[in-house]
Amino acid sequence: MEIETSKNPLLLSKVEEPAKTPSGWRIIWRELVRDKVALLSLIFLVLITAFVYGISLFLDQEEIVTVDLFAIHQPPSADFWLGTDYGGRDIFGQLIIGTRNSLSIGILVTVMTGLIGIIFGMVSGYFGGAVDNIMMRIVDFFMILPFLMIVIVFVAIVPKYSILSFSLIMTAFLWMGKARLIRSKTLQERELDYVQASKTLGSSNFRILFTQVLPNLSSIIIVAMTLNLAANIGLESGLSFLGFGFPESTPSLGTLVSYARNPQTLQDRWWIWVPASLLILVLMLSINNVGQALKRATDARQRRG
């Protein structure tokens, strides 16, 4: 039998074969392949991201946002592929850099809120009791703060801000939902026997949290972060549109759309705001499609693949 043959050193060395890949990724992939819309969305997203980040390497933001009085409100032409705005600035360049900025902010905010939410939610849910109580009251406190008002004040008092500082201010008000989600899931997980087993095997609480519980939360985290990415891009564009986001010197999708607040631009100069609006729409739809497919992949009853 096996017990006998495995004493053979030749057989033992066979075990050093490469480890099997986790089946989770395969499930996600199957789900994406089955859902053609989601697959197309994913391809589109990858292409857009690669394109935007690739091209923006060769573009100089300073040069693009420099006012050129001789080229105001040019319609699309060979020189300016998507025309120019009221400062004679190339819309195509602004679109590329703006998409890059918007994507960067979306990703940065998603990752930062995710990290804070995961750590906060897991600690709160795992330890429970008084710790949970105090931490959730902190969450409640942040929840009731008027997000928009504080962002407006922030924009007013900070004269010049970068992608990072803008992401930080957004993160400060957007991590609570994730913390609550992760907490509720951790509350479920900690009651399971494998956590108890780890305790009896001498693992420390933090070790259990990050090596045992975290992998079991991975699917819900991936789904929540993907869907959040779309929301965060939308939020940044919305703030910029209202004039509380980036100034014109740092183009983003929102600043381009906000040019449409000028009725003349809205009516006669479509090239300024239509591409950016379409891009926002398509980006958010695509991310959502992928997110929905991921969501289905985590729930065996909803899977199509």
Partner: peptide
């Protein structure tokens, strides 16, 4: 002192080899 658990399904972490 070690323990064997009742439920062989939930006592092994499904995400671990």
């Amino acid at each position: 002192v070690q323990m064997i658990f009742q439920d062989p399904y939930s006592s092994l972490n499904t995400k671990k080899r």
